[in-house]
Amino acid sequence: MKADRRERGIRLILYLPTLIFLILMSIFPLIFSIYISFFNYTLGQHMDFIGFGNYGSVLTDSSFWSALRITLEIAVLAIPIEVFIGILIAFLFNTRGKGVEVCRMIILIPMMLPPLVIGFFWKYMFDATFGIINYFLGLLSGNPQIISWFTDVRLALIAIVLVDIWEWTPFVALLAMAGLQAIPPNVRETVRLEKASWWLRFRTLYLPYLRFPLLVAILIRSIDTLKIFDVVYILTGGGPGEETVTLTMFAYRVGFNYFYTGKAAALSWIIALISVGLITILIRVLSRKSTA
């Protein structure tokens, strides 16, 4: 009995640092951010209780809706292409042979680079006058191209989507490869003996194995895209106008440029609710497909 109690005491002491850390660094700020979202509070200035005023202020802010639209546009444009190319790459590298291992490693490099680095070198590549992309477009079209990628409302978004695809397709490919590896070799050989078309094989045999890894990939990519920040921040800085300001960039601006702490807290919770909502819908839709 006595030893039991002592052990419990020791256990508690061992838990304590983690517990304190969690309470201080996660649970308290979380609750406090809800509290503060009900106040008109500019950092360092006095606080006025305004109920849901901050939430109203966010939802009537045209910049918020623009940021939400832009974030969703990036997700809707980038993720399907990432999944499509990811699957292609997975099939391409799912064979054995000399150099395949090396190629697999090379393919994964974009994913391992810090987003900051990616942002900077793509910024140079997209440069209108001396960027390599315009240079190649010039070679392809036969006359020099001066396309100003980041100063056109549509092109800026497309440039961001392209970089996102470049950065994150390897991640999808990695998960898809893992899915393909799970197919028993004999099953794959049996299919090779069948006359089935490529599409039939893909749909009935490969897709069931890819379904779960792709579900995971789409989910993670969706969550990631909802909080996309660094690459966009460096590539376009949100411009032109605010045509590439994403949700997190908008939240950053409200919180750390305007210092509207109360509104930023409300905004963060709205973003969190949107994310949870979208992800829940996504899980429903995708998992329904996989059981049908």
Partner: peptide
Amino acid sequence: LYPSERNVAMVFQSYALYPHM
């Protein structure tokens, strides 16, 4: 010829049934 063009069928030790069907 590709395996599928040879008109042969094979039964494996592990049966290799399509597990999702």
